[in-house]
């Protein structure tokens, strides 16, 4: 098969045929091409779940780690080499459930990375249990009588904590999603996209249900208005708004002090420490002559 771009690879996919994840994968590849990145400049980090397999399906550096723990790895990678384009690809179970705590603290740190959450409101890889975003009352395999607890609204939480780029995309609109990804990667600081990705195997609603409801934000929507953004993600409406929900003037990026005061370079490029420096520090532990 001729390669459309240099991010294509020939690893066989484990996704269900027709899964909207394929659209997200295409959007990511197109975005990276548009951003003029080469595969060696890109590092994709994921945890576990169907979304977390995505890094295998394109040509780049990748770290497919533990369930829920993509963010700590990504933060360590970003701290070590901020020159890499670091992107976390995760799902609603991985990022909002198992790894929820890390997401909260990523909001505080503001690392210059992009987090893409495939949100399908279900645990697909384990065959259909409720996820943190499953609406209350909906039936899932364990929650046979309907989910008894409230869903988590992570975009709202991100906006409250001043995440500088919060967006919602839809896997059924890959071009729009690609534009969101380009803007997200360009944003300096944490950028976060919650992507509606209906599960065609275990999901309880047809793909068309989502397609009929998503609606791009109006051109006059003010992405800089934090209160409006919060209202937007909290309002119950027939329509699901997609687009950039909130974009803030840039705040200090994770590691800025180290980069400004200590060293700008990626950590592996720092000069080895001089043994004399250690010896001189040791003199501080020694009795006076």
């Amino acid at each position: 098969m001729p390669k459309e771009n240099e991010f294509e690879n020939d690893v066989a996919s484990q996704w269900c045929p027709g899964c909207p994840n394929f659209n997200i994968l295409d959007a990511i590849k197109s975005a990276l091409v548009e951003l003029k990145k080469s595969p060696d400049q890109v590092c994709l980090i994921s945890g576990i779940g169907q979304a977390a397999k995505l890094p295998h399906y394109l040509q780049c550096n990748f770290f497919n780690g533990l369930h829920g723990r993509a963010l700590p790895a990504a933060i360590g990678i970003h701290a070590t080499n901020p020159q890499l384009t670091t992107m976390v690809v995760t799902g609603d179970g991985d990022c909002y459930g198992e790894g929820g705590n890390h997401f909260l603290h990523a909001l505080r740190r503001n690392p210059d990375i992009t987090v893409v959450v495939h949100n399908n409101e279900i645990y697909a890889l384990t065959k259909g249990q409720a996820s943190p975003t499953t609406p209350a009352g909906e039936k899932r395999s364990i929650q046979a009588k309907g989910v008894q607890i409230a869903p988590l609204n992570m975009p709202a939480i991100a906006i409250i904590h001043g995440c500088g780029f919060v967006a919602r995309g839809f896997a059924g609109e890959p071009k729009h999603l690609k534009d969101l990804l380009v803007a997200a990667v360009r944003h300096r600081g944490l950028s976060y996209i919650d992507v509606i990705q209906p599960c065609i195997t275990w999901g309880t609603r047809p793909f068309s249900w989502y397609k009929d409801r998503v609606q791009q934000l109006d051109d006059d929507y003010d992405t800089a208005d934090q209160s409006r953004a919060l209202e937007k993600v909290m309002e119950s409406s027939e329509k699901i708004p997609i687009g950039v929900l909130y974009q803030a003037s840039e705040r200090k990026v994770f590691g800025h002090r180290f980069r400004e005061i200590v060293d700008q370079r990626p950590l592996p490029e720092l000069d080895p420490i001089d043994a004399e420096e250690i010896k001189s520090l040791l003199q501080g532990f020694r009795s006076a002559p």
């Binding site: 590092c43 980090i45 770290f63 780690g65 533990l66 723990r69 963010l71 700590p72 790895a73 990504a74 933060i75 360590g76 990678i77 701290a79 070590t80 080499n81 890499l84 890390h102 990626p266 950590l267 592996p268």
Partner: peptide, 11 residues
Amino acid sequence: GMAIGASYAGT
């Protein structure tokens, strides 16, 4: 997790 990420990234 961060330490392993950092080490993967070369430090």
